[in-house]
Simulated assay, not measured.
Amino acid sequence: MNITRYCFTCDLKQDEVLIAEYKEQHQKVWPEIIASIKEAGIVDMQIYLSGNRMLMIMECDETFDPVQRAKKDANNPKVQEWEQLMWKYQQAIPWAKPGEKWIEMEKIFQL
């Protein structure tokens, strides 16, 4: 199996209560969201937090197509409901374009 790793960043609103709620939400991610992630060819996903800055690591198999995933997610009411809920906690990073949330990171080093 060929695995590709993607890394993204996004910020949370600088509010301790909202950050705690966001962490709680991710201890009970809706089953429809987990199913959508797996159906997209994402075999592992991890989110790390430092302060209010997040790093998401996705490991995807050869079936993963980011364009197709975006289309399916846009037409999935449950995914859209989850995204709306998450936007309560999230904010775009300063260099994001309008409407962008998670921004892909550039790999600059590998050992």
Rank of each mutant, 00 (worst) to 15 (best):
R5G: 04
I37T: 14
I47D: 08
Q25H: 11
E21V: 01
E62Q: 14
F64K: 07
R69C: 12
I93H: 10
Y22P: 06
Y6V: 10
L49S: 02
I108P: 03
V29W: 02
Y6M: 03
T4N: 09
M105W: 00
Q46H: 12
E100I: 05
G41D: 05
Y48K: 08
N2C: 00
Q91F: 06
E39I: 03
T4G: 02
A70S: 13
E104Q: 13
D11L: 13
E16T: 14
P94A: 11
K107Y: 03
R69N: 14
I3C: 00
M45L: 07
E104R: 09
D73K: 11
E32M: 06
E59S: 10
M58T: 00
K97A: 15
F64L: 10
M1T: 12
S50A: 09
P77V: 08
R53Q: 11
S50M: 08
Q14A: 15
E106Q: 13
M58G: 08
T4R: 13
K97R: 15
K107H: 03
P31E: 04
W82V: 04
Q90H: 05
I33K: 09
N52M: 04
K97F: 12
E59T: 04
S50R: 14
E104H: 04
V79G: 10
D44H: 15
V43P: 02
I108W: 12
A96D: 08
K78E: 13
Q25N: 14
E106S: 01
Q80V: 01
R69W: 12
I19S: 07
I42L: 05
